[in-house]
């Protein structure tokens, strides 16, 4: 009886707060971004990136990941941020998006955080369709605003195809 009551309470609580999802958070400049943990394969320390002649400008190059070639995307450029010299704190987050494996370069990786679906606000459009395209939403936290990124839309369909052919 007690177990049933407990389950009912949990169910009611989940209905009230919405399902919880986990997000890998990373930093770019002074802002915190999140990617759904289900799309993250692994996080790599900074490694040598081989530039690819003729690659689109949003591609930093390729890395060898246990015998597989992974394209690394210049996230700073994609987000309209100024370039920065890479250092030991940089990480390459290997993601799966649009049936492809790719790496995104970030300044640092912070943590995995739980986000309630109800806490996600739709990011208001700030006058640029390009930016709102890949922003899944924003979550207000006590000390900052977490910007959730939809990695599938980080690149356009054509750009993903371009990456696939590298």
């Amino acid at each position: 009886m007690a177990t049933q009551t407990k389950r009912k309470d949990e169910h009611e609580e989940q209905e009230a707060t919405g399902p919880v999802t986990q997000w890998v958070t990373f930093r770019l400049d002074d802002e915190t971004y999140g990617i759904n943990v289900m799309q993250v394969q692994e996080v790599l320390p900074m490694t040598e990136i081989a530039p690819v002649p003729g690659a689109p400008e949003f591609v930093m190059g390729i890395i060898n990941l246990r015998g597989n070639v992974v394209t690394v995307i210049d996230t700073r450029m994609r987000f309209g941020l100024p370039p920065r010299e890479t250092d030991d704190s940089n990480r390459i987050v290997v993601i799966e998006a649009q049936d492809q494996i790719a790496g995104i370069m970030v300044d640092s990786v912070a943590e995995v955080t739980n986000v309630r679906e109800n806490d996600i606000d739709t990011a208001p459009n700030v006058g640029n369709e390009d930016s709102s395209r890949y922003i899944y939403g924003v979550v207000s936290r006590p000390n900052d605003l977490l910007i959730l990124v939809d990695v599938n839309r980080l690149l356009t369909r054509d750009e993903w195809q371009e990456v696939a052919t590298l």
Binding site: D29, A123, P124, V126, Y134, V138, S140, D144
Partner: peptide, 23 residues
């Protein structure tokens, strides 16, 4: 105020005000 990716130059970003994200 949190800058948003690729925001236009005339925008500073978002800030949370009374539970709403204000541009």
């Amino acid at each position: 105020v949190t800058p948003m990716p690729n925001q236009p130059g005339w925008c500073h970003g978002l800030f949370n005000y009374r539970g709403h994200n204000v541009r």
